[in-house]
Simulated assay, not measured.
Amino acid sequence: MNERSVLIVEDEVAIRDMLVMALEIAEFDCLQTDNIRDAYQIIVDQRPDLVLLDWMLPGGNGIELLHRIKRNDDTRELPVIMLTAKTAEDNVIQGLDVGADDYITKPFAPRELIARVRSLLRRSVGGEAAERLQVAELVLDGQSKRVSVGTDDIDLGPTEFRLLQFFMSHPERAYTRGQLLDQVWGANVYVEERTVDVHIRRLRKALENRTPDYSQLIQTVRGTGYRFSSQGVAL
């Protein structure tokens, strides 16, 4: 039996069969369904390592299932790649805002999809250093995957955690969106640069409702990208 399993949630039989073939050739175990009700049951019962989730599905849509996955403490760390024919920016951002780790628009090349699956799985199994980082009362524990300010835990998704970990490990330097994609998402991942802005916004939101406002540590550098700096921030 292969070690890594992928759940395919796709109602178009031809696409689902193509995905199964590509994944099995790449030595993944495949689970499959065409609706969100059965998909969630499979997630709970069989614990796949990653979900390929179509946007448009019978009896609901992929965003509804994504909401449910990310609201449940037992499944919120499950990596999800959205499969969609929708290319409008608002739709892409909606999926990322809800908690998708990546998205790929149809039609796509099987080799590109496999590259994204492998990269996302590498990131989800603990590739980050198990180090403890601290700025004032903001603490990131790489071993327990917890972030806190004082005695209060901060709820972060896996991508926001990796982004904050990279920033705290590399303070006082400006990084372009492309550099952040390479460092946090992986150099071989095909993700658009605006994805960085979405996750920066989510990370800032998680840090802002504190006293002091730790979201100020993540600074926008005009013409470049972003920098993590405590200079000029009252902590």
Results as ranks from 00 to 15, higher is better:
residue 140 L to C: 13
residue 204 R to H: 03
residue 107 P to C: 11
residue 189 V to K: 02
residue 204 R to N: 07
residue 180 L to W: 06
residue 28 F to W: 02
residue 29 D to K: 15
residue 175 Y to A: 03
residue 215 S to Y: 00
residue 84 T to F: 06
residue 13 V to H: 13
residue 13 V to Y: 13
residue 209 N to G: 11
residue 89 E to G: 02
residue 172 E to C: 09
residue 40 Y to G: 06
residue 32 Q to V: 08
residue 212 P to N: 09
residue 111 R to W: 08
residue 88 A to F: 07
residue 72 N to F: 00
residue 174 A to M: 09
residue 201 R to M: 05
residue 221 V to M: 12
residue 177 R to C: 11
residue 231 Q to K: 15
residue 27 E to H: 14
residue 17 D to V: 08
residue 142 G to P: 09
residue 194 R to C: 12
residue 130 A to N: 08
residue 188 N to R: 12
residue 58 P to D: 06
residue 8 I to C: 00
residue 37 R to K: 11
residue 157 G to K: 09
residue 184 V to I: 12
residue 206 A to Y: 05
residue 97 D to I: 03
residue 229 S to F: 10
residue 199 H to I: 01
residue 135 V to R: 04
residue 185 W to Q: 05
residue 53 L to M: 13
residue 118 R to A: 11
residue 95 G to S: 05
residue 160 E to S: 13
residue 205 K to M: 05
residue 139 V to T: 15
residue 84 T to C: 09
residue 83 L to I: 15
residue 80 V to Q: 01
residue 124 S to R: 01
residue 89 E to W: 07
residue 228 F to R: 07
residue 204 R to A: 04
residue 74 D to F: 08
residue 10 E to I: 06
residue 197 D to R: 10
residue 124 S to G: 00
residue 100 A to H: 00
residue 137 E to H: 15
residue 112 E to D: 13
residue 194 R to K: 13
residue 205 K to V: 02
residue 45 D to E: 14
residue 121 L to Q: 03
residue 208 E to Q: 14
residue 60 G to Y: 00
residue 113 L to V: 12
residue 146 R to G: 04
residue 158 P to R: 02
residue 78 L to K: 00
residue 18 M to F: 02
residue 141 D to P: 06
residue 81 I to C: 01
residue 139 V to R: 01
residue 201 R to T: 11
residue 10 E to F: 07
residue 180 L to Y: 04
residue 101 D to M: 13
residue 135 V to D: 04
residue 71 R to S: 14
residue 95 G to V: 14
residue 106 K to I: 14
residue 47 R to S: 12
residue 150 G to T: 04
residue 187 A to F: 02
residue 52 L to G: 04
residue 54 D to T: 12
residue 124 S to W: 00
residue 179 Q to L: 04
residue 145 K to W: 01
residue 28 F to E: 09
residue 211 T to V: 09
residue 211 T to G: 06
residue 11 D to E: 01
residue 137 E to K: 14
residue 80 V to G: 09
residue 108 F to G: 10
residue 113 L to P: 03
residue 20 V to P: 03
residue 50 L to F: 00
residue 176 T to S: 15
residue 127 G to Y: 01
residue 63 I to R: 12
residue 6 V to M: 09
residue 148 S to G: 10
residue 226 Y to K: 08
residue 114 I to P: 13
residue 159 T to I: 14
residue 50 L to A: 06
residue 126 G to M: 04
residue 31 L to W: 08
residue 129 A to L: 14
residue 115 A to N: 14
residue 64 E to I: 07
residue 57 L to W: 11
residue 137 E to D: 15
residue 34 D to Y: 02
residue 1 M to N: 11
residue 72 N to I: 07
residue 177 R to H: 07
residue 158 P to K: 02
residue 147 V to R: 02
residue 220 T to E: 10
residue 49 D to A: 11
residue 190 Y to W: 07
residue 197 D to L: 13
residue 207 L to F: 04
residue 117 V to H: 12
residue 120 L to G: 07
residue 156 L to F: 01
residue 65 L to Q: 10
residue 51 V to S: 05
residue 135 V to L: 04
residue 223 G to K: 02
residue 120 L to M: 14
residue 47 R to H: 13
residue 229 S to T: 15
residue 149 V to A: 09
residue 95 G to E: 02
residue 197 D to H: 09
residue 233 V to Y: 05
residue 52 L to T: 10
residue 224 T to I: 15
residue 108 F to Y: 12
residue 133 L to R: 15
residue 228 F to C: 10
residue 79 P to D: 00
residue 159 T to H: 07
residue 196 V to E: 07
residue 88 A to H: 12
residue 153 D to Y: 02
